[in-house]
Design a protein around this nucleic acid. Structure first.
Length: 134
DNA sequence: GCCAACGTTGGC
DNA sequence: GCCAACGTTGGC
């Protein structure tokens, strides 16, 4: 079991919309590092959902319901998507500020490599965010 | 709206 | 294969 974090701008695709949809394919990844992470995802892996730009907080937990396949929005075989479904909304969203201030989350990809849109998390980082959010 | 970080592109 | 130019992302 692996843990991940994905980013979305709420204006583009928000947690609320995601919950209404119940399931979505995660498209729009056009970065090789992020793409490689997508390909590593296995069905059942848990994924933190982060709102970038607006909010700047982790708002909920999703899970991988289908492993990577060709991105249906492009012919370019370089790119792929995975299917995600919402699992749970955090009682208290965990802000970027909190994450930066937390000793145990210092090394999280979100802080170290701010521009990456799909990143892996260590189990303890995942747990810590959940802890802060409940 | 600005700027820093960083990935990608293209000329050599 | 190097590196400068450029584009994009995302925090502030």
């Amino acid at each position: 079991m692996n843990y991940w974090l994905v980013k979305s701008e709420p204006v583009k695709y928000s947690w609320e919309k995601f919950n209404k949809d119940g399931r979505t394919f995660w498209d729009g990844v056009r970065n090789y590092q992020a793409r490689n992470n997508l390909r590593e995802m296995k069905e059942g892996d848990l994924v933190l959902f982060y709102h970038s730009n607006e909010g700047k907080e982790v708002v909920g937990i999703a899970k991988v319901v289908k492993e990577f396949y060709q991105d249906p929005t492009t012919e370019d075989t370089n790119w792929c998507v995975v299917d995600l479904s919402p699992v749970e909304t955090l009682k208290k969203p965990v802000t970027l500020e909190q994450i930066k201030a937390d000793e145990r989350l210092k090394d999280i990809g979100l802080v170290r490599q701010g521009r990456l849109s799909v990143m892996s998390l260590k189990p303890e980082e995942f747990d810590r965010v959940i802890e802060l959010g409940s």
